[in-house]
């Protein structure tokens, strides 16, 4: 079972839900939580576990080998991203613009642009009891999150069997990184808050997930502030509201310290149980 936790708007509680739900589920199941918000990974601040493995992550970029180059300019011509430029008698490569399509390298008549690995970030694998936690983080200055997200998902696929419940903490928004993080998920939980910003961005996220033909449910965080428009919208669109996490300054305080909230706030535990039984029913439905 692959569950992606996403949201249009940032700061609605994706990481709070991911870390609390994963830890709660891990009390009774094998769980792997993966932080795919590689630009600003935060889940690790809330999960206390032991580091078991660490690796650098690379993307492949061309490097100019001047010796055989005949300066035909083909590389510059075939690069749609302006990542390879011919400047006089030099070929310059801008790795941060490169998408790693290999066109310049493989179409070079003299093989003067071999592809070499360039570090873009790192992956860490932590373990505590039933809970595994995978975190990737993009190096500052690297602009493209998608290749790192894709490699992180591959790592999870290779290291965990289907029996393990997989939870993915996705990046915010509705553009490529979110698509990459959610496209293979069986179920999407969208976290929102009952405010005009929350509703506006929830609608975008719902549209995106429907475009991907995903099953989804909504968790309303900070329930009690704002208005009822989000609930009204979910009703009209026949979207299941899986849980309502109450608005409380106490929760904000516990969160700010890097602690899990369900251990201290019983109402939150109840909401996590609701989500769990919903997921359970989905699982049974998919098996029958």
């Amino acid at each position: 079972m692959k569950i992606a936790i996403a949201s249009g708007k940032g700061g609605t509680g994706k990481t709070t839900l991911s870390t609390n739900l994963a830890s709660f589920l891990a009390e009774t199941h094998q769980v792997v939580l993966t932080d795919l918000d590689v630009e600003e990974p935060n889940s690790g601040l809330f999960i206390k576990a032991d580091l078991v493995h660490e690796e650098d992550k690379f993307k492949m970029v061309p490097e100019w080998a001047a010796d055989e180059c005949i300066l035909c300019g083909n590389c510059q011509k075939v690069c749609n991203f302006h990542a390879v430029i011919q400047l006089g008698e030099m070929i310059m490569v801008f790795p941060e613009l490169c998408h790693g399509c290999y066109a310049c390298s493989e179409l070079c008549p003299t093989s003067s642009l071999p592809m070499i690995p360039k570090k873009m970030g790192g992956l860490k694998h932590f373990q505590k009891g039933n809970l595994s936690f995978i975190e990737s983080r993009l190096d500052i200055g690297e602009e493209q999150a998608v290749p790192l997200i894709a490699q992180t998902i591959s790592y999870v696929e290779e290291h965990f069997s289907n029996e393990v419940i997989r939870i993915f903490d996705s990046p915010p928004g509705t553009s490529c990184p979110v698509i990459e993080a959610t496209k293979d998920a069986d179920f999407i939980i969208l976290v929102t808050e009952p405010t005009p910003f929350g509703l506006h961005d929830l609608k975008l996220a719902v549209e995106t997930m429907r475009e991907l033909k995903k099953d989804l449910g909504v968790v309303v965080n900070r329930y009690g502030i704002g208005n009822d428009d989000v609930l009204q919208y979910c009703k009209e669109e026949q979207i299941a509201v899986l849980a309502k996490i109450p608005n409380s300054r106490r929760i904000a305080e516990i969160y700010s310290q890097g602690h899990l909230i369900y251990k201290e706030i019983p109402e939150v535990m109840v909401e996590l149980e609701n989500i769990t039984s919903y997921i359970q029913s989905l699982k049974e439905k998919s098996l029958s």
Partner: peptide
């Protein structure tokens, strides 16, 4: 948000940056 292409584009050419944060472990991080 984030540290990738869109924010790089947002920042280029700026005269002054206002960082809005909150005092949580994630905010500081």
């Amino acid at each position: 948000p984030g540290v990738g292409c869109p924010v790089v584009s947002s920042l280029s050419g700026a005269s002054f940056v206002v960082l809005v944060t909150e005092p949580s472990v994630s905010g500081l991080h």
